[in-house]
Write a protein that binds this DNA or RNA. Structure first.
Lengths: 193, 193
DNA sequence: CGCATTTCAGACCATACAGTCTGGAATACC
DNA sequence: GGTATTCCAGACTGTATGGTCTGAAATGCG
């Protein structure tokens, strides 16, 4: 029988995610990844395949974490507008450091080679998932009569995923809470029709 | 005296911009740049400094072109909402190829190293410029009484720069005209208050 | 025409980096 | 305790890439 791994694959993956998040795929050198993960090169290749495999696993990890968080926010049964407000104002109030990191998946989308079909599919799927979370919450609210009967829940869900991405892009450049909150207020007003 | 350049620096720059636009900074190899620009390596270094210099000049070129276009759109004196509609629906109707290319400056923002102060400053400046164009148009409209007296022009201007960036991010992934138009409609509704 | 100067072309160099190989250490089972 | 198996560490390799150097060609002015 063999000896056990000396590191926790999930914990090391979290570290790798952190590096990719800070630096992007290209600028995250294997050397730095290994140092931050605290494992040997061979262990990385044994456990995650190659750099690309590690990257994809890190993206999946991030996605799961983020979307579970979203589901938690909307599950509480609070008014949807309140939850969106919490989301957008929460984003606005993040630290400069967090603003600069932005969203790992948004960065992945914009730095990716457009011919990378696997990654594109993964990101498309994620976008659909997020839209689905938003849409279900909006539908619940509409059924409960809290939202206008003819509100277009699909359009609104898409609109908010787009708005969040736009805000993340802006925040990465200009970590200015006031400006972000201005945008948030305008966006939230679309729910009062 | 010396001989003249055998190529048009501006035309070659446009070609370089095209390459960066398609592939991003990292993936645009010097070899490909030279091939597409149709010049020799030494000429590139003589004319543009180095790869980074060429990149920055290409970004500036793109910015000038894009923002001149924006100014032209808003200058015509048509109702601002109509112009924003033209902008957002125009974006929605672009080809898949155009959607995949997205916005060079948005990509630059998201693939950049966060410690790159020069590039950050350039992009911040551009964002302010775009917001300024939007804001002036909104102010004109408000003075003319076409827009609610207490409309927050600064907030609206920011909101639309954010929306466009979000839509560009989404379009890069999912070139789906209908979805984009849904988002555009929700966003445009913020102007009817 | 001839010279000074700049451009062009491509060989050349240094470096960074992903990925592989090798040898030794640790560990679980017999 | 011995042995098979897996892990760890780091040397090594091949390659791609940005950037420099050298020499030759072109060109404008005197």
């Amino acid at each position: 029988m063999a000896r056990r791994k000396e590191f926790d694959p999930d914990q090391a993956l979290a570290k790798a995610m952190d590096v990719f998040w800070r630096l992007g795929y290209e600028n995250a050198s294997l050397e730095l990844l290994l140092r931050e993960m605290g494992i040997a090169k061979q262990s990385l290749y044994d456990t995650y395949g190659d750099k690309r495999g590690l990257y994809m696993k890190a993206l999946a990890y991030y996605r799961r974490q983020t979307n579970d968080g979203l589901r938690g926010l909307f599950a509480a049964g609070r008014p949807v507008k309140e939850v969106f407000a919490k989301l957008l104002f929460g984003l606005s109030a993040e630290s400069k450091h967090q603003h600069e990191r932005g969203c790992l998946l948004l960065s992945a989308n914009l730095e990716r080679d457009t011919s990378d079909a696997t990654l594109a599919e993964f990101l498309r799927d994620n976008q659909a998932e997020v839209e689905g979370i938003f849409r279900e919450a909006l539908l619940r609210e509409r059924r409960a009569g809290e939202l206008s009967r003819n509100a277009d829940t699909k359009a609104l869900a898409r609109f908010f995923t787009v708005t969040i991405q736009g805000m993340r892009a802006m925040a990465r450049l200009r970590s200015d809470r006031k400006s972000l909150e201005q945008v948030a207020r305008v966006a939230l007003a679309t729910l009062d029709q």
